Simulated scan of single mutants.
Amino acid sequence: MTSITNQLIFSISLSIEAHTIAQEYSQGISNIVKQKQVYLNTLAVYAVDNYLQCMGFATDWKASDSHNNLAVKLMDVADLEVKNIGKLECRPVLPKAEVCKIPPEVWSDRVGYVAVQLNSALKEATILGFTPQVAAEISLSQLQSLSDFLLYLSELEVAKSPKTEASSSLVKIGQWLDGAVDAGWQTLEHLLNPQQLGLAFKNAVSMTRGQKIDFEAELERISVALVVKITSEAEAEGEVDILTQVYPVGQNVLPEGVKLSISDESGATVLEVTSRDEDNWIQLEFTAELAEKFQVKVVYRDLQQTREFQV
């Protein structure tokens, strides 16, 4: 157990609400052993559900087998549906246990298995870690950390998100001036607060649109807005002026280290800027020719989002 205590863990108080739900799910079961099993499974799911919501993941307990009265009576099941990701199995672990046991009926249709340790009074649940691989039992010392767990879920969410394909498609920015704006690009009123709008519109432009970008690194989740402004008032005919900016969403300043870069069609970086401490926004301005392609990259720590454009 030494290795577990050195890892990041998350504890949650098991409230009256948690025990009320567990009592509801286990009532009517005459077999004492089975009744206890359902009760503990429900507390484990409750804890993981609360944890994931705290971390910003959307869950749907009602769509899970553990919410189905017939399923919980027939099987040893403690699953939780995580939207756009899949089912997690939330296995309760008693205080002196050294392994997390996984019953055969939940060896399939799961994206991972989470070990939830319940204290002897059932007043607190501690999420110890997870494993993406199924086994009849796994040593608690072999569990992967919660940092790895959140990163794993984020990668699954991106891979399964319907927005992934749209995000990587070519944005025909040259058509914006004709009013044909690509799907997924919003007016700034939908992304930024009124104070930020004053900054965003400081330069006169013909068309401005933005897109929200979410990053998650370990336990930190940040959201930024990528803003693109285009005007045809370039000095040379057949060229457009383009201004790209990154603003914080939900905060007043950007985290230090957010990088904005512009690459040409070959992928070579031609412009780059990185946020400093207390920067309200960062920006890059350049001129592009009609039909020219370029990439805009927003990077935070080891995470990167790329948007491809054609004038």
Results as ranks from 00 to 15, higher is better:
Q144H: 08
Q283V: 03
R276W: 07
Q295L: 09
K297W: 07
D76W: 03
E81Q: 11
V106E: 13
A47H: 03
V240W: 05
L284F: 01
Q295V: 00
Q117F: 00
Q37V: 00
K297V: 04
T59E: 13
M207R: 08
S145T: 10
S169Q: 12
A125H: 01
V171A: 12
L140K: 11
L260K: 10
A291W: 04
R110A: 15
R276I: 06
W185A: 12
R221N: 12
T244N: 12
S64P: 05
K34M: 08
R110W: 02
F294S: 09
E89F: 02
T306Y: 04
G210W: 01
E233V: 03
A180Q: 09
T306H: 09
S145N: 10
I173H: 05
I85S: 15
Y152T: 05
V116S: 04
M75F: 06
S108F: 02
Q295Y: 09
A125Q: 04
T126C: 08
G179F: 03
L254I: 02
K229W: 03
G174E: 05
F294A: 10
D178M: 06
L192P: 02
A78I: 03
I213A: 15
D277Q: 15
T231K: 12
N6D: 13
Y152K: 12
T287D: 06
G179T: 05
D49N: 05
K87P: 05
S15M: 04
F10N: 14
Q133W: 04
M207Q: 07
L219H: 03
F57G: 10
L156S: 02
V171Q: 09
A63K: 12
I213M: 15
A291Q: 10
I4E: 11
P104L: 13
L140V: 01
C100S: 12
S232R: 06
A166G: 08
H190Y: 01
